[in-house]
Amino acid sequence: MSGATQTGAPAFGGEFFARYGIFLFLALLIAGGGLISPSFVSSGNINNMLVQLAPLGIVVIGQAFVIISRGLDLSVASVMATAAVMTSLYTSDNSSAPLIVASALAMALGTGLVNGLLVTKRNVSPFLATLATAIMLQGIRFWMTSGAPSGNIPPLFKQIGAGNLGGVPISLVIFLVIAVVFWVVLHRSAYGRALYIVGGNPIAGRLVGLSSDRVIIIAYVISSTLAATAGLILAGFAGVVDNFVGRGFELDSIVAAVIGGVALSGGRGGIAGAVVGAAILIAIFNLVLLIGAPVQFQIIIKGAVIVLAAAFYIKKSKS
């Protein structure tokens, strides 16, 4: 990660810790976790955490695009659940798979477009725009399924969500491919450069002739599309669908991005940090359960980590 496109991240050595501290933290967390509870680093548990990382990681990548554009996407969980519900909408054999994927992508594209258009053309705050689409999608989903989704998921999705490929979970492979592709988009493409400029300094973006509206709208579409992908994977993993697949992912993905150094003020952070942020979150959740603490501590630690991580990056960028 040369960081050539990471505008706003100071280049001098003193900032090394702010930039790479997150990777160090994950390494320490895993080492410390292994010392406290050896089963934490057993291959079975690591496999388990990686399977959990895949959907959150996919969502957090999209969330990072939106946050870098100086936005926020609260609709990802609703998009995930709507995509998940769609897996049982048609026939339960594999022949309906293309139709399911097409419907989910169309829904995601529509949601991303509405979010992006509201934010750019109507100047609605991202918080409210994506909250409103999330609520509407929830209503549409309930209405579509009459409150209780039924039907079976085609086996193909179960394979993708829960299957292995030479010992490696298929969902993890999909996640890694997505991570690489979007790392290239964000850090090596003209669009990525434009996104950092628009998010970091909208006025400068306009001055150098960027269509900031289009850049922002594309970020929301990427976020919705990745959320729908994660929803399909999670539905396949669970094997059954309910109306709340992905519940909590909107906040978890924002928290993971913030832990990973994606600044809510826009224009800063990257894919690697965001993904590591997601991994840290999942490792902490896992550790809390392994050491036998009440599950409520997951919630308490999550809350504390959000504030601490945000404060850490703010202080770093000021000093």
């Binding site: 100086r70 936005g71 926020l72 509201l118 109507r122 100047n123 609605v124 705050s125 991202p126 918080f127 409210l128 725009a129 909250l131 409103a132 689409t133 999330a134 609520i135 509407m136 929830q138 209503g139 549409i140 309930f142 209405w143 009459s146 409150g147 909208p202 809510l264 003020s265």
Partner: peptide
Amino acid sequence: THLQLVVQGLIIIAAVSIYIERKRGLA
């Protein structure tokens, strides 16, 4: 109640679209 949720979402969008906000902010 399902469609009521849709209506609630529409109200938020309608309200924020009518009172156009001055400056772009996160929240």
